[in-house]
């Protein structure tokens, strides 16, 4: 477990990096999306404070920054969970039974698609096409892409995390 101090220290240095990156982009307002990408990579999500900071640096109204951040799906406004399972529901995966995968995970875990478990341990999401369609259906477990997935294989993989969830409930 990280101590509060190290966490604070990390945040301060991330902020310094963000500031220098914004400077490199010459405080250009049209670089807002690039800046939000950088900020999300540094802080793992976009908190209200981060958005306020970006707005101030780029001399943009907060509403505008908030508007852009909420428009695009890839920007996260909540802290990410410890583990993520993303089920691709693009057309090729859909045709090959992606929804069976999603339903299996949903009924096993009790989590709804698009939700994060109460203890912030697990997030279950669907995404519209990751594009390795040749190996559909595809899931991404903690950043690792897995093709030709079946409900059985997927559950096997997730069991480790979900055992804890079951214990909790």
């Amino acid at each position: 477990m990280e101590s509060k101090e190290t966490k604070l220290h990390q945040e301060v240095s991330s902020l310094a990096i963000l500031e220098s990156e914004i400077r490199k982009l010459q405080y250009r307002q049209d670089a807002l999306i690039e800046v939000l990408h950088i900020a999300q990579n540094l802080f793992s999500y976009l908190s209200k404070e981060t958005l306020r900071y970006v707005a101030k640096q780029l001399k943009l109204p907060y509403s505008k920054v908030q508007g852009v951040a909420t428009f695009y799906h890839l920007f996260r406004l909540q802290p990410p969970a410890e583990h993520t399972c993303i089920v691709c529901t693009g057309t090729a995966c859909y045709v090959k039974g992606a929804y069976r995968l999603l339903e299996t995970v949903e009924s096993w875990s009790g989590l709804q698609e698009g939700h994060i478990s109460e203890d912030s341990k697990i997030s279950l999401r669907s995404v519209r096409c990751l594009e390795p369609c040749g190996i559909a259906p595809v899931v991404v477990i903690d950043g690792k892409v897995r093709g030709h997935e079946t409900p059985e294989k997927l559950l096997q993989e997730l069991k480790g995390w979900f055992v804890n969830v079951k214990d909790r409930s």
Binding site: D30, L32, I33, V68, F71, Y72, L74
Partner: peptide, 25 residues
């Protein structure tokens, strides 16, 4: 390079240009 942020509509040319300029697409 400009990186999108997950909005299908940004493939439409006027939306894409809005996004390049840092706006909602």
């Amino acid at each position: 390079l400009r990186t999108g942020a997950g909005a299908f509509v940004c493939g439409e040319e006027t939306a894409l240009m809005a996004s390049i300029m840092g706006q909602r697409g």
